[in-house]
Amino acid sequence: MMGRVLTAYGVEVTKALRQRFTALGPALVILAVLGALPVHPVARDGVSDYAFVAYVIPVALNSLGLLLLLVYCAGLVSGEVADGSIRQTLVRPILRHEYILAKLLLGMSYAVLLTLTAVITAWGIAYIFGEMRGVSFGGDLVFADNEMLATGALATLAGLAPQFAAVAFAIMVSTFTRNGATATGVTVGLWVLVDLVKYPLGMAPFVFTTYLEMPWQVFSNRCEAVDAYWQPMLYYCLACSGGTFLVCSLVAIVVFHRRNFPA
């Protein structure tokens, strides 16, 4: 089975590399990071550089990046249903859940691509225009540069968990719908709705979107020389995101299994 999933994933990557939207996402993320420079300039003062990274990455990833990710993933299945090309794939020796797993892998790869684009661009700018020698307070070095790098790396990794959940959520909606535009509308609409009602209904701790910015919050605190702890929020983030990812993936597979693809 894994062989067929990886083959299908390879095919998905080949297709993705030839689609304009795939390149548009990272390009827009780079522009968003660059666009943040006037708002949050970087200077060689040992403070603004880390602060720039802490500011720009969540902004680039959790607003624009997330929207791009949702739009991209919402069209992965529904787009092929709409244009009919899915029928050429499903008559090949590949099972439907393997097709969905390949799509999930592609969506996750896109999330990694957007994240790495934002992180590398932000850190690159900070290193070029700033003076990254760690975070000091009152003349004392509180966090060395390698500690900040490690925190940034962990935030990057932890930040992928809710994004993977978002991928599974968008692909789940994509399996319900018949075209990319509807899938995108429903995905973004549901996302906004959940974000609006999660606090009034008291379900925020159980919704993975609550934890989107959490990983970078620790980094942000450390930029201000305030020690912050990963636990227990990181566990909540991983548990909620992991749970959402599993549930949405399973629903996507079950729904897709039951669908018919007539002319």
């Binding site: 067929r4 244009d83 009919g84 090309s85 029928r87 590949i94 002319a263």
Partner: peptide, 19 residues
Amino acid sequence: FVAIASRMGVLVERPAFHD
């Protein structure tokens, strides 16, 4: 299905491709 599909060729009505 997997074993069958590898020995089968299909042309659906109005075939669609990756344009």
